[in-house]
């Protein structure tokens, strides 16, 4: 596909912000950037930061030229990448699970089946080191944030907000709907790589109780 609707804006002296038509286009454009960087055809950049509908390129030597070039790129389709998806075993015991199931108009059991059946992809990271915004649930399963955020969400909480699923890498305040808990460590600076989830990583959630994994 061509990068239709793509707009590249200068940001300060050394950065370019690329705005795309939607989330899928953004993920495809980000994948294209990584492909070109791996192939050595992308000019040197210090940071490539995808977000909901944009990709920021920071630390660019000639941002003017890159900004002029980017909208004309041919962007390949977002193919299923080689390699296995990261599996995250979840105990679906979150305090908001019943409310989420009600919002979806299904039983709690069906809500768990919907979440474990979907294949997710890390669209982007942010909020805290190692916190990924995962897409993959059907549009109709979008949920609002909680009206009042919790002052402390435990580490390992699996949560939903808008179209996204996320896993809290550490305890922090948060307004997402908590549907479960995982023992999987999302962020560990003593490990390489520190982040389990990086933009582009494919993810599947499994029910911990059902497989005997991840129980305490």
């Amino acid at each position: 596909m061509n990068a239709v609707g793509t707009r590249a804006m200068r940001v300060g002296e050394r950065a370019v912000l690329v705005e795309l038509a939607g989330g899928e286009e953004t993920e495809a454009f980000h994948a294209e950037l990584l492909r070109r960087r791996a192939a050595g055809t992308l000019p040197a950049v210090r940071e490539i930061v995808p977000a909901a509908r944009t990709v920021l390129l920071d630390g660019v030597a000639d941002p003017e030229r890159l900004a002029a070039e980017l909208p004309g790129w041919e962007v390949g389709p977002l193919s299923a990448r080689v390699g296995a998806a990261v599996g995250i075993p979840v105990r679906y015991d979150g305090p908001d699970l019943a409310e989420v199931a009600a919002l979806w108009g299904v039983s709690v059991e069906a809500a768990v089946r919907i979440h474990t059946a979907a294949e997710f992809r890390v669209a982007f990271c942010g909020f805290a080191p190692g916190f990924g915004y995962l897409t993959g649930l059907d549009e109709r399963y979008g949920v609002p944030r909680r009206a009042t955020p919790r002052t402390a969400v435990p580490a390992g909480s699996v949560a939903l907000a808008g179209p996204y699923t996320g896993v809290y890498p550490r305890s922090s305040p948060g307004g997402w709907q908590l549907i479960g808990t995982t023992d999987t460590v999302l962020w560990d600076t003593g490990r390489e790589p520190a982040a389990l989830l990086a933009p582009g990583t494919r993810v599947r959630f499994t029910e911990a109780g059902a497989t005997g994994e991840g129980g305490r």
């Binding site: 210090r46 940071e47 490539i48 930061v49 995808p50 920021l56 920071d58 630390g59 982007f124 990271c125 942010g126 909020f127 805290a128 080191p129 190692g130 916190f131 520190a194 982040a195 990086a198 933009p199």
Partner: peptide, 9 residues
Amino acid sequence: RTGHAHLGV
């Protein structure tokens, strides 16, 4: 600590 912004760092 540059180069890790895409991970939220």
